[in-house]
Design a protein around this nucleic acid. Sequence first.
DNA 1: TCTATGATCGTA
DNA 2: ACGATCATAGAG
Length: 195
Amino acid sequence: MRLKRGFFLRPAYKVAPDLLGKVLVRKYKGCTLSGIITETEAYHGLQDKASHASRGRTPRNSIMFDQGGYTYIYLIYGMYYCFNVTTDKKDIPSAVLIRAIYPLEGIDKMKKLRKIKDKNIHHLSDGPGKLCQALQIDKSLDRIDITKSDKIYITDGGVKVGKKDIHKSPRIGVDYAGEWKNKLWRFYIDEDCLF
DNA sequence: TCTATGATCGTA
DNA sequence: ACGATCATAGAG
């Protein structure tokens, strides 16, 4: 079952751990690319110095200020995309960055899209930029309603994740965020949990 | 207009 | 540890 609007109308730090074990599905040129979400990060509120929303509304981040359940995709370091799902109610900027998935369907296609020597399945989509390459996610999928789109969506058909299986840590690559870099808003599970 | 920088990754 | 590479945001 596809996740409904209500799932996303909460703060990102509550949605992020709940997304672990869910399945991210991407339909691309007739093939299905999917994987189980294994790592997420929350970015929440105007005060969160690590969040793009911390300096207020801009053309790029404005979708974060709308109601939750939409894609927020941006280019980072001039060469990689990051894939987020917005959360919470209108006017509360909040989003979950999907940082890693465990490949499920379309693994051969993902290997081609990633075009790297390393054929190791474990390095196929274990990073925010990598999973966007593996699932052919780019700016053309920005600002899409993820509860309605046929190109990209999330289902609960993955694995059930126990609360004690969820690890928490500070977020990655946000040293500029002052005290906010200490928030335990990164959530992840071990691959053992998938079996 | 101009400039600095980044929610990263692969190679070394 | 470092360079690739460019959209975005803030300053002038």
